[in-house]
Design a protein around this nucleic acid. Structure first.
Length: 540
RNA sequence: GCCCCCGUAGCUCAGCUGGAUAGAGCAUCGGACUUCUAAUCCGAGGGUCCCAGGUUCAAAUCCUGGCGGGGGCACCA
């Protein structure tokens, strides 16, 4: 448990001790926050505002009383407690408390903010799942960045994560790809509903494309296309643990057995020559077709078999990261899950909004339908992996994001990703001026000395807040909060760097403290960047 | 017509499981180079938090109803 968490607990316990009923309900609502301005205190709590109605006394009086209790319990750690505003209690922590906190940051080292679980919770994150008939484009890029960052974050917070890519290798589109490849090889016109990109001609050598039978050609074209996809994603820093074939579900009987299961549970019926799922029973707008009247299973049908397969693998949660255009699919997936006897919260469907590239004030259209799309490779070539990942992740997934390639490629502090990386490199540079012994000594001999400078306090408090930032980011499935934390760490470090000279600071206890702050800040920034999949350079 | 997301500074967006004087980046304007990395830093201006009601000691945040933008509503994949 970190120092802030411990402080929070003491506040909750002290407040709960003042009432006789529903102590837990009260404790759950009590917050420990940062006051709007640093001069108001290091932390503030709303406890008195919540206690007042129960104690039938004025909030400010209750705050006063609570301040007294905390002074007793916290001893030297608490320098002062002020009552403010409508009844907030503002806490000023002693330098000794903060330096103890810094020590815990250094002790945690490269695992600072991580949860080391005794029993890791297994979760599955399925993302990208682009059709294996063409390159990964900008729309997939956001899903790739988000899904991967979510996976990293969940892993950091104690989950064992499987990254999974669902390969739609069963339907007619794979055949269309093969037909397009063949047509191109024979110099014939590509079918109108075929695939027209330049990559089509490069999937299979012309000789083979002319002579293989269509099934074999399908297989080869598909494999080649998947290889393109895998390579693009890998260059983007995204690796999958499982590439799951839709075709395999049909070939190994999984589809048939899922259908049998639903039938046995009375969840299906025949009508108009088709087989339907009673999804309206489970909150969907309408029932959905599983087997079309022509005998072909729908895509939804394979999705259900796939869901069953995932469920059989024992994950606590199945995440589906989808583009906003798949949003309409959610009710039927939940319905299918329930029809199979599952609980609705076994799956979590997360959809992300679109990405626009802007240039010269104009939006560059990015839809596949218009036939004119930017590929992931083009994006990473144009602005680099670090900038691409940063800008795709710095915004909440449920808002559209605009990327300005001009800003993203700027190598200056105007560009947030460079600003954060620069802060990291700058710390490395400062530390490089010291001997290894001196740095090691700073770790072991950290102790209170001169009163802390306001910029030292600010940086230290920011560092202490980091684990909770990560916890919230993970709970809310919100990697953009990690980016926000990284930026704030960089800003606080920069202010500290400006105000507090490190190397040669006097007295030596001050230099020690500042070295320790550099170490901790470098660590936290590196962790934040790692969680985003952005590099943390030692030199720039 | 129904469902989902969004509406906050000139622009792009945080904040929205309710708290104090609403934040960041970009852009604009002004300033700092005998440096621990100036690939930097400091400062300033800039707001009906879409509108109207409601709940609350307290609403950008929650509820209701509008308005505006985007997306989705197949026996397609």
């Amino acid at each position: 448990m970190g120092p802030v968490e411990q402080l929070h607990r003491v506040v909750r316990e002290s407040a709960a001790a003042l009432v006789s009923t529903d102590r837990e309900g009260l404790a759950a609502q009590i917050k420990l926050e940062r006051p709007p301005r640093a001069d108001l205190g290091d932390y503030s709590t709303n406890a008195a505002l919540l206690l007042a109605p129960r104690l039938q006394s004025a909030p400010r009086e209750v705050a006063e009383q609570l301040g007294g209790v905390l002074a007793d319990r916290l001893g030297n750690a608490l320098a002062r407690a002020d009552v403010a505003g409508p009844g907030f209690l503002n806490l000023f922590l002693s330098d000794a408390w903060l330096i103890d906190g810094l020590r815990t940051v250094l002790e945690a080292g490269s695992r600072y903010g991580a949860v080391t679980a005794e029993h890791e919770i297994a979760v599955n994150v399925e993302f990208v799942s682009a059709n294996p008939t063409g390159p990964v484009h900008l729309g997939h890029a956001r899903g790739a960045a988000y899904g991967d960052a979510l996976a990293r974050l969940l892993a950091w917070r104690g989950c064992s994560v499987t990254r999974e890519f669902y390969v739609n290798d069963y339907g007619s589109q794979v055949r269309k790809l093969a037909e397009s490849v063949r047509a191109l090889a024979l110099g014939e016109p590509i079918p109108e509903d075929g695939y027209h990109g330049d990559y089509v001609g490069e999937l299979v050598p012309v000789e083979r494309a002319r002579t293989l039978d269509l099934d074999e050609l399908s297989r080869e074209a598909l494999a080649a296309c998947l290889e393109l996809i895998r390579g693009s994603l890998e260059r983007f820093g995204v690796r999958f643990d499982v590439w799951f074939s839709e075709r395999s579900l049909h070939e190994n009987g999984a589809v048939a057995s899922a259908l049998a299961r639903l039938d046995q549970l009375g969840e299906t019926y025949n009508q108009d020559g088709a087989l339907w799922l009673r999804s309206t029973k489970h909150g969907d707008d309408r029932d959905r077709v599983l087997i079309r009247s022509d005998g072909q299973p729908t895509y939804f049908c394979s999705d259900i078999a796939y869901l069953e397969d995932k469920r059989s693998r024992g994950y606590a949660t199945l995440f589906y990261v989808w583009g906003a255009d798949h949003h309409g699919y959610e009710p039927r997936m939940k319905a299918a899950l329930e029809a199979l006897g599952g609980q609705r919260d076994e799956i979590e469907l997360i959809d992300f909004q679109f990405v626009h590239l802007i240039g010269g004030g104009e939006r560059i259209a990015m839809s596949k339908r218009e036939g004119e799309y930017v590929t992931l490779d083009e994006l990473t070539t144009a602005i680099g992996v670090d900038a691409a990942r940063w800008f795709l992740l710095a915004r909440s997934h449920d808002t559209t994001v605009e990327i300005d390639p001009e800003l993203a490629t700027r190598k200056s502090a105007d560009n947030p990703v460079y600003y954060v990386q620069y802060a990291h490199a700058r710390i490395a540079s400062v530390l490089a001026r010291l001997t290894e012994d001196r740095v090691a000594q700073a770790r072991s001999e950290l102790a209170p000395g001169e009163p802390l400078h306001p910029s030292e306090r600010a940086l230290l408090k920011r560092l202490l807040a980091f684990p909770e930032d990560l916890a919230e980011a993970a709970e809310r499935r919100a990697p953009h909060r990690v980016a926000a934390a990284a930026l704030e760490l960089a800003q606080e470090f920069t202010a500290f760097y400006r105000d507090c000279h490190v190397v040669g600071a006097e007295p030596p206890t001050t230099e020690t403290l500042r070295i320790a702050l550099c170490l901790a800040a470098r660590q936290a920034i590196a962790i934040a960047l790692e969680l985003l999949g952005v590099s943390a350079p030692e030199q720039m």
